[in-house]
Each structure stands twice: as C-alpha cells, then as structure tokens.
Amino acid sequence: MNLIKSTFTNAFKNIFRNKLINFLSFGIIAFTLLIFGIFNYLTYSLDVFIGDFSRNIEAIFYLKDDARQPEIENLITELEENLLVKKVTFKSKNQAEIDFSRRFPELEYALSEFKDSPSPFPASLEVTFRQENNIDIKISTLIKEVEKLSIIEGKEVNLDWAKQVTNIKKFISVVGFFLSLILIFISSFIIFNVIKLNIFFRKDEINIFRLVGAQDWYIRFPFIIEGALLGFVGSVVAGILLFAALKLFPAYAAFMFNIVKGMIDFEDIPFNIFIRLILLGTGIGLVSSFLSLRQHLKPSND
C-alpha cells in the first residue's frame, strides 16, 4: 500500500518536475483527442438523425398552382383511406410562406420582393406513412402513383434525404476513422517520446533507485502512471473543449447552426462520448508509456 502510494506520488511529482514538456504534451494530446471527439460526435449525431428519419417516412407532394380545390380534397380523401397512410396535412401557399419566414427569419428580405404578389411557395400535401414490417416498396409505389397525378408539381421524400445523409455520414465516418488513426498515432508518438525524455532526464535517479534496492516495477510504474495521466488529462481537456465547442456553436457559427441544428443535437450531448474519449486517452497513455519503457528502460546490467 505504501509502495503504491509512493509510486503514485512520484508520478505526480515527476509531472511537475518536467512542467514544460508535460504541459505541452497535455495541450497537443487534448487537441488531437478533441478532433477525434468532434468526428465521433458528428457520426453519432448523424446516426441518430438517420434513425429518426427512417422511423417516420414522410412525403411532401407539391401541388400545381392551377390545382382545383375539389381535386385536392379528392386526393386527400383517397390518401386518408389508404392503409399505408397515417396522416395527411394540407399546407396552403400562405401557410408555406409563414412557415418559411418562421424557419429562416434572416431571409425575410427575400420575401419582401413578393409583398404585393401571391405567395411564391406552392401549396402542398404532407403525408406521413405507417411503417410496419417491410412495406417500404408499397409506399414507394404509392408515392410514384400520386406523383403521376396531374395536380402534382413535384415531390420530396425524406427517405431520399436519409439516403443522402447516410452517404454523408459514411464519408464523415471514413474521414473520421483515418483522421482519428493519424491523431491517435500522433498522441501515442508524443507520449512515447515524452516518456523517453523523462527516462533520459531521470537516468541518474533510476540508477540510484536500483542501487538502493528498488524493484523493477517500482521504477517503471511511475512512468506508466505518467503516460496514463498525460492521456487522461489530455482527454479530459479535450472533453471540456468538445462540450464548449458544441454549446457555443450557435454563438460563433449562427448561420451554420441553422443549417445543421436538425441533424446535430447541441443540447443533449451524451455522456458516453466523454467516457469514450477518456478511456481512449488513458489507454493511449498506458500503451505508449509501456512501449516506451520496453524500448528505453532496459533492466539493470546483468
């Protein structure tokens, strides 16, 4: 117990003895883990977003300007009676304009151009489908049939969106994976070399410890703890920075925020992300310091 306490104390003291090197490494490790955390959070958020999308298949059918009211009502009735359809909502041209103003207040000036003319937005039918078992094909067929009707101008189906977002997510995952590999390698390399430097700086101390009867683990353990601490503190700092970056995102990137706020959750950041970061950082620290010790701290000469 005393030995363990003493090795931990040594590890903490040693970090403060080589302040400059250790604090520089904390910074670089924190930065690399922050980049890892951002990519991790992006892929997580997009996963949730795609999941939500796929749960509620929705289609918006835009109506031609000359579509007559009875034709529209007929279509609504037909759709409501269809077993695949859960809900049909009619959105008038005026309602579409109001919704747009509410969603993009900064583009209000564009609408002022049409102040004296009718709303530039088409009326539409928003259709939510029931998604039970495997009925995607049937829904697709129904969507195609409705699209062919003469009163329909065009359509937008969120499944298409989901597919596009999935592609973006795949791209981000691949980029994130390779970037993370590089960043993890950089972090490991830094810790590996910091431990190497610390071994070099403490060469005399190590020798004295050996000569007065220290066991090998007593000499090695503080270096392992130092490596783990470098990774741990680096990842905690990265976690705090990630939290701040997500919380402050609306303030420093307001325009971007409006575009991505539906896809990325800036409110409920799951704690798992931080746990993962800390485990990764500490793990990198442990493994790198272990490898560095194997390479640079040979057993005494026998």
């Binding site: 117990m1 005393n2 030995l3 003493s6 004295i208 410890f209 007065v212 009867g213 220290a214 007593y218």
Partner: peptide, 10 residues
Amino acid sequence: VPLLVRGIRR
C-alpha cells in the same frame, strides 16, 4: 529513498 523503495510506512 532506500526506505521508500522498500515500502516502509511513513
């Protein structure tokens, strides 16, 4: 130091 490395109590 020689006592610390032996795990002797404070």
